[in-house]
Design a protein around this nucleic acid. Structure first.
Lengths: 196, 196
DNA sequence: GTCTATACGCAGATAGAC
DNA sequence: GTCTATCTGCGTATAGAC
């Protein structure tokens, strides 16, 4: 009987219940913040008992981390894809607009990502959030024949902070046009960091 | 007997126990975050029982709000003072350097202020955090004989985000020179928002 | 896999003696 | 003003039946 069902899944397949739990956790955190993402509320939103939730997930903390990681992976995939399609000289600008665009298209992911630094115990990774952009800036400058920048870290940090602020404003006030803001920020980047 | 002690204090005087509790709360939040500022830990840090703490303060939530407000008031007093001493044309630049300088001099206040938006139920005030800077920008432009800016909100938002990022970096890595970063950010402000 | 029942800890807050 | 003792609620997690 080659079609009998065993206890396991085919190697690459997903665990559907776990996926569902991650999904409702993202909705809960995205809409009401990490403080609202308790075992009881997650169970209720998933239509399960608390014990059943913990049958599919080792702990609430692990589930919260998995939800955050899924949001982060989705963001990295989309932004990273857009960046790689562009020539090196334009990548910083694409990074800015793609990042702001991503969170405009995924409002729930905004809160998941922005509150994660406060609520989750994140290893040192969060401390170097400015590094990817710094690398893009440096590579764009060499692609343009410019000398290395002296204050790369501060430049990347400030641009990243500007992105965060624009994304947050779009979340607080959906009538705020973050696409236009992204163009503006990209223009500053172009004229200040990527010229002379 | 005009010197007898009654139950009250002279009108303008502080309530010393309450002040002490606010103080230890700021230390706790500043060093370990809002999650660590529980009634039990506050009591322990103050050398009191939990019940005694609540004799001087109506609730933990109120104490947390008071601690945040004290930090905010202190910051506004220092930054506001520096800004008012400067001519209108220079105020945005002074705002940036004074703000970053304040949090460099008061590391504990950094975390109290930055996590407050996530942990405290703040009324609409937090939504207009960009407005003071926007006003300074507008006034500086008219003082310089420039026409009103078109994207004031985004400019103030992005600068504010840059300030936040630099302040946070100084907190995470004390060897990071946020004073130099402030000069850089102020320079961008000068050349991008306050010229032509 | 799913449930009910339960254990356990910790948070905030109150009662009442001193 | 200060304390000890207590209450209540909520959070995570486990035990064990179905």
């Amino acid at each position: 009987m080659s079609t009998r069902r065993g206890p396991g899944r085919p190697p690459g397949a997903a665990a559907p219940r776990r996926e569902q739990l991650i999904e409702v956790t993202i909705e809960l955190v995205g809409d009401q913040g990490y403080a609202a993402a308790t075992l009881g509320r997650i169970a209720e939103a998933a239509g399960l008992s608390k014990a059943s939730v913990l049958h599919h997930v080792p702990s609430v903390a692990e589930l919260l981390a998995a939800a955050y990681e899924q949001v982060l992976a989705s963001m990295v995939a989309e932004v990273g894809g857009a960046v790689e399609e562009a020539p090196a000289a334009d990548r910083p600008v694409v990074y800015v607009t793609a990042m702001i665009g991503y969170f405009r298209e995924h409002p729930r992911h905004t809160r998941v990502a922005s509150e994660a630094l406060v609520h989750l115990r994140l290893p040192g990774e969060s401390r170097e959030r400015w590094e990817p952009l710094a690398q893009l800036l440096e590579q764009a400058r060499t692609a343009r024949g410019l000398p290395p920048a002296r204050e790369l870290r501060t430049a990347a940090l400030a641009i990243g902070g500007g992105i965060d602020a624009i994304v947050r404003e779009q979340q607080l006030d959906p009538s705020y046009d973050s696409a236009r803001a992204a163009e503006l920020l990209a223009g500053v980047l172009e004229n200040v960091v990527l010229s002379h």
